[in-house]
Design a protein around this nucleic acid. Sequence first.
DNA 1: ATCCCATTTTAGACTTAATCTAAACGCCGA
DNA 2: TCGGCGTTTAGATTAAGTCTAAAATGGGAT
Lengths: 143, 143
Amino acid sequence: MATRETRDNVEARMREAELRLTPQRFAVLEYLTRASGHPTADQIAAEINRRFPRASRATVYNALKALRDAGLVREVATEEALTRYESNVEPHHHFVCRSCGKMEDVPTGALPAPARVEIGGGREVEKVEVTLRGLCGACKGKG
Amino acid sequence: MATRETRDNVEARMREAELRLTPQRFAVLEYLTRASGHPTADQIAAEINRRFPRASRATVYNALKALRDAGLVREVATEEALTRYESNVEPHHHFVCRSCGKMEDVPTGALPAPARVEIGGGREVEKVEVTLRGLCGACKGKG
DNA sequence: ATCCCATTTTAGACTTAATCTAAACGCCGA
DNA sequence: TCGGCGTTTAGATTAAGTCTAAAATGGGAT
């Protein structure tokens, strides 16, 4: 259940971001604020549809896009999707250019990421993925 | 062009992994060995189809799966796919359980990942994503 | 309070990555 | 060489996400 405080806070954040306060958009942010996990767009759509049975997929994606652009929510990619392959199986990191999409290898030595990681919580870390994002040399030159 | 050395090396790696040496599978690994980038399954399929016009998508995916299971190729997820959302926009890392798929936040302080990164090559790093993968406490308990 | 209109929502078709299926094929050990 | 079983094939299917055009509406202007 959304508390009064949560509702007011969500509303304030949306006003501050100069986002039009539609009920659907509001519901998306309100749900994400109290959701403990990292819901997928589908899970969010299911929740929104409980209150707005006619809400379409596009509405949810539109809302998420607007909230993301406003810096109110964050997107996190998971591995269950478009995949790239390489035969270099030695440990290394990746740099992905946000302009041209090119992916480049980055030697492990370039970053102080540890081989063994202990984060507690009874979890067993098997591997660490580090992805750097930004502009590659070529795209940076083009302005 | 594949050199004789490359072909022999690819063949040896497949034999060592006890993988049946089909021409299509061979071509996939051979292509990945000389490909400098990080091709997608589609790009790999296009290349394979130049030599095997009747090769189907499933063949490419089967080959990649077999090579991945044998440790000869690595899969790298990119951001262009299934996305999860959260309203926590403060910097932090993620732990993803390979058994139940649950994603959990990991405080930045738990890892020595730097806020600013310099990797050279004229590239401008705008953000660093760190994803830890393994077994969560609950799944570890279930054996 | 009402009007207006740019923004947003809606329904559903469309795109694309990846998986599944069942039948035909072919690698490789005996 | 032969035969079994793993692999390939063609095409249907699933699923995430995008697109479109028409209808609805938030919120500033009057």
